[in-house]
Design a protein around this nucleic acid. Structure first.
Length: 832
RNA sequence: GCCGAGGUGGCGGAAUUGGCAGACGCGUAUGACUCAAAAUCAUAUGACCAUUUUGGUCAUGAGGGUUCAAAUCCCUCCCUCGGCACCA
């Protein structure tokens, strides 16, 4: 890409003008917008070094941009600008995640169809992002609700279907009666709908599911190779919830039936005193004894009435005896079989061998129903009393031939002894993928009475979402699309008979599962992404966004990426190599910003009052990027003052030199000396500033980068303006430009005579040896307390330092010195 | 309950191979400019004690330990935030 010379009109400088941010910011935003933001375009040229810096694209809600968006987007913009100045080709795109409930609910509220409100919201978001000077490659803008985009979302679904990874099944689902749709497990938080907080109900419905469980191991293992915050990895690990154990069969006494249990602690089997089944267990009906049938049925009906959440809330154990016994394969003991809702059908085998002595839950249950307990692991050989329940490791007791073995060693032996088979279970469930709502991608499937599910042909994509007058959810377990007879009724492409379209739509997460790919090749009509292009850019080098997507978007996207990897469409195993979560910005009251609390800060207002550069700077200065912090409107003033002082310094200095004006200040000899020293020292300060700011940016420490720049400015301000060497002004502007691009661009082009835009100007460098100063300060301590400091030349010997420091601390030395600790060039400590 | 992150002035925060705690900024006070206010600039600003000055003591959630030296390392405990929550 050819470098463009700056052609903006230069401001005529006659007297020192005031910093008028709104004019300057508008001017540069207009300049950057030339040729569809050409200056921010990223080239695919394979000869360049490529870097992909990605933001989590926003949901264009009716409320507009939030200060939380600005935080992450500013951070990624600083990095994008910094790396461009260091010669990298940086891909920094933006788009819109516009399908889903919020847009639809907003449409319902305003009675305007989402087709009209969404573009309006997008326009507002786009304007807001541009008013912040973010350096996005706008020619790559994407929108998940654009048929040219979602044809490929549908295409991926068809591939999943083709490979057997998308299937329809009647399953127990989470139903939100307020949103009138099913939810995935990931969308349920503490038993409530992630979107509207209403309690989730249990329903049994036929739904589309994606077999994410087929990827459980890879999703888990590959976490080890990516540079993500530990807590996000941990959340995904916990969510996948892999546990290794064994399956063991227990024979039912007097019947030719077996109960299979899953356990991770087979070594405790001699301590099993009863078995428990989940209320949904299919064998209950066959096993229950005649005399207990009605009672058991009553209990099960009661238990099944509760949702999972209610079952978990009620921690008080409940249950009922089935009236039958099983044989413990370890010691042939007869043990009773119970039913209880503390055992879950959708994990393991739905049956548990209970070891009350070594499991807290079993212990509570046994206590409540007076069932026996039997310890089999002792924490210590000599211990007589074993605390119950004891869940740790120890020495086997009461375990026949295994007595005396360490429990860790006994594990495998006992598992083998009772005929256990190794098994692995996961907490992760398949992803319930259909929604009974209007505003989503239609699922490209046709339902034929004869042929069953018939996938659409690729050439028939995109299957467009038809416009609809009444897009209210029906609550009838189907999408409002079901009401459009002309759309629903169709000929079966296979047999030509009457058929209907699938009316459920995809969840809002579908579009965001692969959007980072489409940025690489947004206008490709033939395929979702060109193979060469994805090879150039993937995986994403840096992904910045909120932690709230840890087990939603980030898990789903990894799943789809791995699927596309298996299809040979992408060549990296993981989509996002490095992830950073920006901390939440709380309101001034320290609470989460929300309309109901009335503590929401609008970026627009801050920009109007202080400018975009000030807002960017402020959000970065507030604190470390990754930690939560509360907004302080007063704090914006600090960075605003700083920007004004930068303006005054640069314009003032340039003018002073031009007019050969010198500030006439009466100076004493002493202050003249001081000034001379200051100026002499300034080059070291400059080099240090470059080093610190560079390192801070690379380590995402934007708050301290800014304070370093403030310190540098403080130093420069101590010197008469006409005496400041131009290189200091240039360094200041270059280092500051990723943070406050508008101001810096204006000063560089109109005052400092830069010929090229700052993005095409090289980032300043420092010489490590200049940093090595000859004069250093040694701390003089007595008994570990600092009593004086000593300015000496570097590398001075202990003897010489002692000699020079002793007179300074004479009055503290009223006892004999026992010891002297000396750390060269750092500290000397006299101890008595 | 389990797991993770954290606790430093009036406030946001800085300082991590252990080496001058409080950088930078906000706020506050006083002064300059002004008829006045705002803005701006200058100086001061952890707490306490003492003072004409030099100064002294205490301080990084609490208590203990290691060390010449601890915000930083170790032990015990308290609190805040986030995640998971009968997953056998």
């Amino acid at each position: 890409m050819p470098q463009r010379k700056i052609k903006t009109k230069k401001t005529k400088i006659t007297s020192q003008p005031k910093y008028s941010f709104s004019q300057i910011e508008k001017k540069w935003q207009k300049e950057w917008a030339k040729n569809n933001y050409e200056i921010f375009h990223a080239s695919d040229n394979p000869k360049k070094k490529h870097l992909y810096i990605l933001d989590m694209f926003p949901y264009p809600s009716g409320e507009g941009l939030h200060v939380g968006h600005v935080e992450g987007y500013t951070a990624s913009d600083i990095l994008s600008r910094y790396y461009r100045m260091n010669g990298w080709e940086v891909l920094h795109p933006m788009g819109w995640d516009a399908f889903g409930l919020p847009a639809e609910n907003y449409a319902l509220k305003t009675k305007i169809p989402p087709q009209k409100t969404v573009p309006k919201n997008i326009n507002r978001f786009r304007e807001q992002l541009r008013s912040l000077g973010f350096s996005y490659d706008w020619q790559r803008e994407i929108n998940t609700t654009d048929p040219d985009y979602y044809r490929w979302t549908q295409w991926i679904f068809l591939k999943l279907y083709e490979k057997g990874l998308a299937y329809e099944e009647e399953v127990p689902v989470n139903w939100c009666d307020n949103c009138k749709t099913v939810l995935s497990n990931e969308e349920v938080q503490e038993g409530k709908c992630e979107r509207c907080q209403s309690p989730v109900q249990r329903k049994h419905l036929r739904q589309w599911l994606l077999k994410i469980t087929a990827y459980a191991d890879r999703l888990l293992d590959d976490l080890n190779f990516i540079d993500w915050p530990e807590r996000v990895k941990l959340m995904q690990r916990n969510w996948i919830g892999r546990s290794e154990g064994v399956e063991i069969e227990f024979k039912i006494d007097g019947l030719n039936e077996y109960l299979k249990v899953f356990t991770t602690r087979p070594e405790t089997i001699f301590g099993v005193t009863y078995l428990v089944l989940a209320p949904e267990h299919p064998l209950i009906k066959t096993l229950v004894s005649q005399d207990r049938k009605t009672e058991v049925e009553r209990y099960i009906n009661e238990a099944l009435n509760y949702s999972d959440f209610e079952r978990q809330l009620n921690k008080e154990k409940s249950g009922i005896f089935l009236g039958i016994y099983a044989i413990n394969p370890a010691n042939r003991q007869k043990i009773p079989v119970w039913v209880s809702d503390y055992v879950l059908m959708n994990y393991g085998t739905g049956a548990v061998m209970a070891v009350p002595s070594h499991d807290k839950r079993d212990f509570e249950f046994a206590k409540k129903f007076n069932l026996p307990t039997k310890p089999v692991i002792s924490p210590d050989k000599n211990l007589k009393e074993i605390p119950e329940p004891y869940e740790g490791e120890g020495i086997m007791i009461n375990s026949g031939p295994f007595n005396g073995l360490p429990s860790k060693k006994a594990k495998e032996k006992i598992a083998f002894y009772v005929g256990g088979k190794k098994a692995v279970y996961y907490k992760l469930r398949d992803w319930i993928f259909s929604r009974q709502r209007y505003w989503g991608e239609p699922i490209p499937i046709i339902k034929c009475e004869k042929c069953g599910n018939v996938p659409l042909k690729e050439k028939d994509l995109p299957l467009k979402l038809p416009p609809l007058e009444k897009f209210q959810p029906t609550g009838k377990n189907e999408s409002p699309l079901a009401d459009i007879a002309s759309w629903v009724n169709i000929q079966c492409p296979k047999c030509g008979g009457p058929a209907k379209r699938e009316t459920n739509t995809m969840p809002q997460w579908a579009g965001s599962c692969w959007y980072y790919l489409r940025y690489l090749d947004p206008k490709n009509k033939k395929f979702l992404v060109d193979f060469k292009k994805q090879k150039t850019w993937l995986p994403v080098n840096l992904y910045i966004g909120g932690v709230e997507h840890a087990v939603l978007h980030l898990l789903y996207a990894r799943f789809w990426h791995k699927f596309l990897y298996d299809l040979g469409i992408v060549s990296s195993k993981e989509p996002f190599f490095k992830l950073i979560n920006q901390g939440t910005i709380l309101g001034e009251d320290g609470e989460k910003m929300s309309k109901s609390r009335g503590n929401v800060v609008s970026p627009d207002e801050v920009i109007k009052k202080y400018g975009a550069d000030a807002l960017r700077m402020y959000e970065m200065f507030l604190g470390p990027l990754t930690s939560a912090k509360s907004w302080q409107t007063n704090g914006v003033i600090g960075v605003y003052r700083f920007l004004n002082r930068v303006w005054d310094l640069v314009t003032g200095s340039v003018l002073a030199k031009k007019e050969k004006k010198s500030e006439k200040i009466k100076m004493t000899k002493e202050s003249q000396e001081k000034l001379k020293e200051l100026i002499n020292h300034l080059e070291i300060t400059r080099q240090r500033t470059i080093k610190k700011v560079t390192e801070d940016i690379e380590h995402f420490r934007f708050n301290t980068a800014i304070s370093t720049l403030m310190e540098y400015l403080n130093h420069l301000e101590e010197i008469p303006k006409e005496k400041i060497d131009k290189k200091h002004l240039e360094t200041l502007i270059l280092l500051l430009s990723p943070f406050a691009p508008h101001l810096c661009e204006e000063l560089a082009s109109s005052y400092l005579g830069f010929k090229k835009p700052l993005l095409k100007t090289k980032w300043p460098t420092y010489k490590p040896d200049v940093l090595k100063e000859n004069q250093i300060v040694i701390v003089v301590q007595v008994n570990g307390k600092t009593r004086a400091t000593l300015k000496v030349t570097k590398g001075l010997s202990q003897k010489e330092v002692e000699k020079q420091s002793l007179p300074l601390i004479k009055k503290y030395l009223n006892q004999k010195i026992k010891r002297i600790v000396f750390v060269p060039d750092k500290i000397i400590n006299f101890v008595f």
